[in-house]
Design a binder for these strands. Structure first.
Length: 574
RNA sequence: CGGGAUGUAGCGCAGCUUGGUAGCGCACUUCGCUUGGGACGAAGGGGUCGCACGUUCAAAUCGUGUCAUCCCGACCA
């Protein structure tokens, strides 16, 4: 490729609307342009990167025994009604109508379609197991798209679905996919952590996420992990042993005390001279539009996803002050936030965190303004259900080995789920077993965000000058820069190197633009070519410069040696 | 959807308070000069100032509405 002909426009400055480095750099270096909120054009350089990632994914999926297919992204409402998700999925599903007013949607994922494909084609136990995958655009009308390719409304995803006879088969395939994913991300030059996670809207019982660990805002997930064993989990799924397992408030007598203006836990602690771990905190959440009360030790926080799952809901948010006020009035109380209790709230479900079991002689609100009950115990509080609804904190005990947990942030680039029969049962997707009896497939599903992986790679590999692509997913491997294109010797050497590398199968760009050296160097760094060969003044000694973008290492070689070295280093990685 | 902000040339911005010829830097075109880390000079092309309505002799500027985008919270590959 000649740089003079390449479709690329690098910018002198970062776009003002970009927040995270991958977004800033991909726009500035001419990889992407925004078309609409969360929707991007993938320009030629970007498309090359995406195809590289796709091909790695394709090779590893094929090697793992999966078969590629392609399903439509326009999907009929009827299938989504079969699974029950037409109602459940909500506004994130991009819906549309065709000219006959038939309702359709743009696929956010393909469980419904693949299940229909499978039930049409997989009739016998002899045909199983099967794993089918595709790579294509997905559509999710995110509440808030942001961070460029990291959270788009349209994005490229690899989604795979496995069909097994039984749980044992699924377990085996799940492990198989986990191994394939490790290889895929390694080959892409990414360090990932496989963490336990909540299975969310897709459903199912067990799920793991592959996280690219990053310290920046681009990592939207908190990941807890143990330094001493292999435990790691998304914050929405992490469990831990508390540092202070049993807490006793020391109030020997149960009584109602005046606690004026103690609207926060902090003020209440100060007033009563106690620590927060002996106060039982009452929180009101709205789950699927209905109020739920959550009880937790006041020194800890509620993990909303865990709470929602404990309740079996699909949507959760904390109640607003006016909503709390309304609930109070409806139950004949006038207490505000800070004095809430479960007393008299007989029609509202109450879920308490497991750790509440270990509280004694504690302090709790009783729906009376400026009063609390001290010396309370469990039988003073109505609790419908105990569950782990607590947000883990760094430093708490690892559930596997007891050592302290650490926390970091991660970008989720891949995800594997055990679905079981969540889709096959309602959609009546069955095979006939040896006895001729119909059995639902036991399914798994496995996603990789292709476009997100590309962005995550930038988040993990950049410096002040630009992107530092891992060789395996770089749009091109090498840029050859003749410092002065009007210098015949420089130009002829550069062209020779360009030709030799091209013929050896190396993807190389010749920067033949009539620009000053500085411009070409800046662009090379910004775009992020892993290697740069500079043909300049040292050509008088018969040498060219060989620079590695990742390390900044620079050496001088004869053109022949430079070519030989490049071929060796690049082939070693691919 | 709630809270905050911004819409002026491809990108980054000024102009708006106090209404009166639409500007600057980069990018782009041409010529000259230059050629090792985003040179310089000259001459150009490109904008219904997000959109609509209103106030006014006159609106980028004032008012109302609307749309879009971005940031902070709840979703997820």
């Amino acid at each position: 490729m000649k740089m003079s002909k390449m479709f690329v426009q690098t910018l002198r400055e970062y776009p003002s609307d970009a927040e995270v480095v991958s977004h800033k750099l991909l726009v500035r270096a001419g990889y992407i342009r925004k078309l609409s909120q969360g929707i991007y054009n993938y320009l030629p350089l970007m498309w090359r990167v995406l195809k590289k990632i796709e091909n790695i994914v394709r090779e590893e999926m094929d090697r793992a025994g999966a078969q590629e297919l392609l399903m439509p992204f326009v999907q009929p409402k009827e299938l989504w009604e079969e699974s029950g998700r037409w109602e459940v999925y909500g506004r994130e599903l991009m819906r549309l109508k065709d000219r006959h007013d038939r309702e359709m949607c743009l696929g956010p994922t393909h469980e419904e379609i693949i299940t229909a494909v499978a039930r049409d084609g997989l009739k016998s136990y002899k045909q199983l197991p099967v794993n089918l995958y595709q790579i294509q655009s997905k559509f999710r009308d995110e509440i808030r798209p942001r961070f460029g390719l990291l959270r788009g409304r349209e994005f490229i995803m690899k989604d795979a679905y496995s069909f097994d006879l039984n749980e044992e088969g699924l377990d085996k395939e799940y492990q198989n996919m986990a191994q394939a994913y490790k290889r895929i991300f390694e080959r892409c030059g990414l360090k990932t952590k496989m963490v336990q996670s909540d299975s969310g809207a897709i459903g199912g019982s067990v799920s793991h996420e592959f996280m690219v660990i990053t310290d920046t805002d681009a990592g939207e997930n908190d990941v807890f992990y143990c330094n001493d064993c292999d435990y790691s989990a998304n914050s929405n799924h992490a469990v831990s042993g508390l540092l202070e397992a049993v807490t006793d408030g020391g109030f020997t007598e149960k009584k109602i005390v005046d606690t004026p203006d103690t609207t926060t836990i902090e003020l209440l602690c100060e007033f009563l001279n106690v620590k927060p771990s002996v106060i039982l905190k009452d929180l009101v959440y709205i789950i699927d539009k209905k109020p739920v009360m959550a009880l937790i030790r006041a020194d800890k926080e509620v993990e909303e996803t865990k709470l929602m799952n404990a309740f079996g809901g699909s949507d959760i948010r904390i109640a607003t002050a006016p909503e709390i006020e309304e609930i109070m009035i409806n139950h004949g109380f006038n207490a505000a936030k800070g004095f809430i209790g479960v007393k008299g709230m007989d029609d509202i479900p109450v879920i308490a965190d497991e750790s509440v079991k270990d509280m004694k002689n504690f302090v709790v609100g009783i729906n009376e303004q400026d009063k609390h009950l001290v010396g309370a115990n469990l039988d003073d509080v109505r609790i419908d259900k105990f569950a782990d609804i607590r947000l883990v904190e760094a430093g708490e005990h690892c559930p596997q080995c007891g050592k302290p947990l650490s926390v970091t942030r991660g970008i989720e680039v891949g995800n594997i789920f055990k679905l079981g029969t969540k889709y096959s049962k309602p959609m009546n997707a069955v095979y006939l077993d040896k006895d001729g009896k119909a059995q639902p497939y036991v399914m798994g599903c496995y996603g990789i965000g292709i476009s997100r992986t590309a962005a995550a790679a930038v988040e993990a590999h950049y410096d002040e000058f630009g992107i530092k692509w891992p060789v395996a997913i770089a749009p091109y491997h090498v840029v050859v820069v003749p410092v002065n294109i009007n210098d015949e010797q420089q130009m002829s050497v550069a062209e020779k190197i360009y030709k030799d590398l091209s013929e050896a199968g190396i993807e190389v760009v010749l920067d033949d633009r009539d620009e000053r050296a500085g411009v070409k160097f800046k662009d090379a760094d910004l775009i992020g070519f892993p290697y740069r060969i500079t043909v300049g003044k040292t050509i008088s000694e018969g040498l060219v410069e060989y620079k590695v973008r990742e390390t900044g290492a620079q050496e001088k070689y004869t053109p022949e040696d430079a070519v030989k070295n490049l071929i060796n280093s690049i082939k070693a990685v691919l």
